[in-house]
């Protein structure tokens, strides 16, 4: 169960894994997520489903090494099994009836934006993908986005890939040049989603964002993933993970995401040393 069938380094900090999980593969839809535990006693973390193959019974995850658990996950090899893998959780991204959409992905968020872009493309929707990375070495899914997009705007912070600048610059240019979108779907770092929403609010374009907050059970029991949307408390695990970006209190969400920073840093150092010792 939950065997890693394929492992591939997309860039030095981002890895793709194909996991054997037939029950989840049979039901997964773009926008949904899984929760996993690497080894017994480990932390439960949510990861959005990057792809699935119903026939093969597999689910693909793409993750960035950001802390102890993702570091441990990255240390797992093909043929090894994860301790727990559960899903598909959350509501699928609502894409029915959309005719023209700008899909904005930032960094590893592109891994989550891609299946949405692909699904939109398959239902005949015009897709403009705006992807942003810090630098060229961190670029992922370039060919995949090209294959499912009518237009791709590639951005990087340092100008080593595509155009130098932020995804919001590219989005503003597209809107200003007369592109009319039914919706913008933005997935990436909280700060990026916040500024995409600020921009689209100016133009009155509906914007959907995907949240990936800290979770424990992820099944609607603990309330850890709560956020304020339109002045109300919502749970990302059962009410989301997609929300109307213009209603989300990003500042609160960003603070909540930092709640265990010190613990996480110490834990990561500890795991890092352990893994070094093992090699």
């Amino acid at each position: 169960m939950y065997t890693i069938l394929k492992k591939q380094e997309l860039n030095p900090t981002v890895t793709r894994m194909v996991i054997e999980a037939p029950e989840i593969a049979a039901k997964a839809k773009p926008g949904q997520f899984i929760l996993l535990i690497v080894r017994e006693g480990g932390e439960r973390i949510p990861l959005t489903i990057a792809d699935h193959d119903r026939k093969a019974g597999t689910v693909t995850i793409i993750f960035q090494i950001v802390g102890a658990t993702t570091r441990l996950l990255n240390a797992m090899n093909e043929g090894e099994s994860l301790y727990a893998f559960v899903g598909p959780m959350g509501k699928p991204t609502a894409i029915e009836g959309l005719r023209k959409v700008a899909v904005v992905g930032g960094g590893v968020g592109c891994a989550i934006a891609y299946p949405v872009a692909k699904e939109l493309h398959e239902q005949g929707c015009v897709v403009h993908s705006i992807v942003g990375f810090r630098t060229k070495d961190l670029v992922i899914l370039e060919d995949e986005f090209a294959a499912c997009s009518d237009k791709v705007a590639a951005m990087s912070d340092d100008g080593t890939y595509g155009t130098k600048g932020l995804v919001t610059d590219a989005l503003r240019n597209l809107i200003e040049s007369g592109e009319k979108y039914d919706e913008v779907i933005a997935i990436g770092p909280l700060i990026m989603m916040k500024f995409v929403c600020k921009l689209t609010k100016e133009y009155g374009i509906k914007t959907v964002i995907s949240m990936n907050p800290i979770m424990i059970d992820g099944t609607g029991m603990c309330g850890c993933c709560r956020l304020t949307v339109g002045g109300e408390t919502k749970f990302a695990c059962v009410d989301g993970p997609d929300f109307d970006g213009h209603q989300v209190d990003f500042d609160e969400t960003m603070e909540r995401a930092r709640q265990y920073k010190d613990f996480e840093r110490a834990r990561d150092e500890h795991v890092c040393n352990l893994l070094k010792g093992a090699n």
């Binding site: 424990i216 029991m221 603990c222 309330g223 850890c224 304020t228 408390t233 909540r256 930092r258 709640q259």
Partner: peptide
């Protein structure tokens, strides 16, 4: 929703289950 506010379910799950 401040940091340091838990539901009992979250607090107990972190402590007991995890």
């Amino acid at each position: 929703n401040f940091k340091g506010v838990y539901s009992a379910n979250e607090f107990l799950t972190r402590v007991n289950l995890m």
